[in-house]
Amino acid sequence: MNELLDILMSAGLWSSTFRIATPLIFGTLGALLCERAGVLNLGIEGIMTFGAMIGWLTVFHTGDLWLGVAAAAGSGAMFGLLHGLMTVTLGLSQHVTGLGITLFASSLSYYVFRLALPVQGTPPTVEPFANWVVPVLSDLPGIGPALFNQTPLTYLAIACALVLAYVLARTPLGLAIRITGENPHAADAQGLNPLAIRICAIIAGSALMAVGGSFLTLAAFNSFFPTMVQGRGWVCIALVVFSTWRPMRALLGAVLFALFDAWQLRLQTAFGKALPYQLFLMLPYVLSIVALVVMARRARVPQALMKPYRRGER
């Protein structure tokens, strides 16, 4: 028992918690933004994969890390536009379209990656983001060294959560997004254009997802390999439900999930001999399902989620 607590208190654990949480924060915020406007975006897994690939490839060729992040965001926006045209303009099934985009985006990333880099013995690497040590704050006892000694993308993720929370709750734009997700007919009656709002929300949300993917290749690791997203996108979709569609709770959920993931990694090294390692790897997925079951009753789902809107049709 003491061993478990010791692990929980170590600074290394909290440091890796924020690292593991970063792509989940981006992905969860992106999915949350889409869902607040009334659209379930199951393209997330593929969009994150493509963001990871294109971000890495850009940095590999130019050496400019921020250009890589921008390329990822741009590619995410393009897939978001495709998703929006199909699910909003045409009103097609959001489930099937999203899965189709996931399959398309991930297979396209593998294809483009192989095209750009034929198979080699050891995968080439890039110089990833270095940690930015925030001067005074990183000396704070406890959380300081863990939270304020991270790559800039982690700070960006937390900033995105703050901005999105403010925009959704306190600005006319956020109100417009929320009305569209609750009742697009009412939005239309207010002179808003629900179709345009939804498409823009999907584009912005998908860009966030792709940036989350690029964190994997530009900060967490330094190379791209197929299936590296490993279901993180699906975990984000579960985290949105866990967060009851609120950005700050999404941040909290992602950090909690990451804490658990970091903890199970350490348990694995501590108890790996006694128990098969697969059991530990399963835990985060099992936890997501348990969280869904616990939260589902309390969730206040955006009322028009997954309901396409066509003017003049009920």
């Binding site: 489930h95 979709i237 399902i289 969730a299």
Partner: peptide
Amino acid sequence: FGVDEVVTTLLL
């Protein structure tokens, strides 16, 4: 419980 089966089947 009203748990969306998309996410649960995917995670499974």
